[in-house]
Simulated scan of single mutants.
Amino acid sequence: MKADATAIAGLHAIADRFDHVLLDQWGTLHEGLAVFPAALECVARLREAGKRILILSNSGKRAGSNQRRLATLGLPPDAYDGVLSSGEVTWRGLHAREQAPFAELGRACFLISRDGDRSIVDGTDLVVVSNMREADFILLGGLDDDAAEPERWREPLATAAARQLPMLCANPDLVMFGVAGLIPAPGALAAFYHSLGGTVLFVGKPHPPMFAAARDQLGRPPPDRILVIGDSLDHDIAGGRTAGMLTLLIGSGAHRATLAQASDLPRAIQTVAGTAARMPHWTMDYLTW
């Protein structure tokens, strides 16, 4: 595999290569407390340079919820061009019922969400049922901390798998930050369901529906004029690569434990990535102009 990740000091070095940015949240813009000062300045400089910025999140909640959260962390809505969450893409797909995987699903769903959030079904013609036995499919939008451990779900999910009940997972992330630290995220529960023989359909990074929806929201520009910036080789980089977009890895995020001690960062990324399909075009330590 060719080592094609070029280390850069800031986005200004490649600003002529892209017109649009798909920007990850956690690990790139912030880590839950406040938007990093350098990232805040970088977003402003991108807008000054005429770039359009769409924030991409694997959150199972709707875009508005994510936008309000970003505002509390210091990034106001007028600083960028929009938020696209996997929950928003899922809601749009379930509302329109025009494309796979949404068109093939039934109307009765068993909803699993965080904090009792029902925004992912509001305004659709779905009927939320309280028992998996009455459902046509399982809609996994989020998980409360106390329900995150997959083994807690073994009995009902084994029964659902035996019934060949499909699961639509609106957040492919495998881990998330809970009160006590890292805990399983919805993607881990989806993987557990798959291990029980269940069929899982994913919306979110790195899966194609997420990047297709992002490109549509930007007005369908050429993919090679879109730069995907994120801290995950599995989600941001792999998804952007598959979509034919440019990619940049933030080294201080999800892979920092592995990359922090590397004397040759691009070579270390090559080792972690494993395949060309997960290799970023560029890399830098943190988001900066």
Rank of each mutant, 00 (worst) to 15 (best):
I53K: 00
T271I: 13
A214W: 03
T258W: 12
E104T: 15
I138D: 07
R52V: 10
A254D: 11
L182G: 09
S263I: 14
E134S: 14
P37S: 10
I14R: 09
A5K: 00
G10A: 15
K61Y: 00
I14L: 12
I120P: 03
L143W: 02
I8L: 10
M279H: 14
A180K: 15
A243T: 02
W153I: 07
G239K: 03
A63P: 04
N171F: 06
L46T: 05
L126N: 06
H95I: 06
D236P: 05
A191S: 13
R68L: 10
R154M: 14
L46P: 00
T90I: 01
R92S: 09
T288P: 10
L182C: 10
D125F: 11
A147H: 11
G253S: 08
Q67F: 02
S130H: 15
K2M: 12
G10C: 15
A71M: 09
A238I: 07
R133C: 15
G60K: 01
P221N: 09
D224S: 10
P206A: 01
K51Y: 03
I120K: 01
V83C: 00
A49M: 05
A238G: 10
I226F: 01
H20C: 13
A185G: 12
A71R: 07
Q67H: 02
F137Y: 09
L165N: 06
A268G: 01
A180H: 15
A238Q: 13
K2H: 14
I55W: 00
M210Q: 04
V228N: 07
M284H: 02
A44K: 15
L143H: 07
S65H: 15
A103V: 13
L246K: 11
I112R: 03
N58P: 08
T90H: 03
I226V: 07
I55M: 00
V272F: 07
I53Y: 04
W289S: 07
K51G: 08
D224M: 05
T72W: 06
P101Y: 08
D125W: 12
G230Q: 01
T242Y: 11
S252I: 04
T271R: 09
D173N: 07
T242N: 13
R62A: 03
M245W: 08
E104P: 03
S57Y: 01
A13C: 14
S130V: 10
V83E: 00
I120S: 03
E155C: 11
P184D: 06
D144E: 09
I53E: 06
Q99C: 13
P101K: 03
Y80L: 02
I55R: 02
L139C: 03
G87P: 02
G198Y: 01
D117A: 08
L11C: 08
P186T: 04
M210G: 05
A276M: 11
W282C: 05
Q261K: 13
G50H: 01
D224Q: 12
D236I: 09
